[in-house]
């Protein structure tokens, strides 16, 4: 599906319109999708099949494992982490963490 750039997706000047720019271009090329957005969907969405399988996501506490790895990697390879709080993937929302 291709859509024209919806005017309302334009962000105010000075913003980095990451999602909006991608969205406006139509289908997202796999390599440009933010991994974190992709994992939101791949780990919490989709058809889940259990039984009769060699392996399925349901068999492993994958979310925790992979995101622990993700965060560790982000923190060592990327810029300094912005949050001093303990990494706690998917659990405390920003409003749930301390003051």
């Amino acid at each position: 599906m291709t859509i024209e750039r919806p005017a309302a997706l334009e962000k105010r000047a000075g913003d980095v319109p990451r999602g909006a720019a991608l969205a406006a271009e139509g289908r997202l090329p796999a390599e440009r999708v933010a991994l974190v957005d992709l994992l939101d969907r791949l780990l919490a969405g989709g058809v889940v099949v259990t039984g009769d399988l060699v392996i399925s996501i349901a068999d492993i506490d994958l979310v925790r494992i992979s995101l622990r790895a993700l965060i560790a990697s982000v923190r060592t390879a990327g810029p300094p982490a912005t949050s001093p709080s303990e990494p706690s993937p998917w659990e405390p929302g920003p409003w749930e963490s301390g003051p």
Binding site: R41, L42, L43, G45, G46, V47, V48, V49, D52, L53, V54, I55, S56, I57, A58, L62
Partner: peptide, 11 residues
């Protein structure tokens, strides 16, 4: 299409 959860492997 119905996407399937990441890593769903059958024998």
């Amino acid at each position: 299409a119905a996407p399937v959860r990441l890593v769903t492997v059958y024998g």
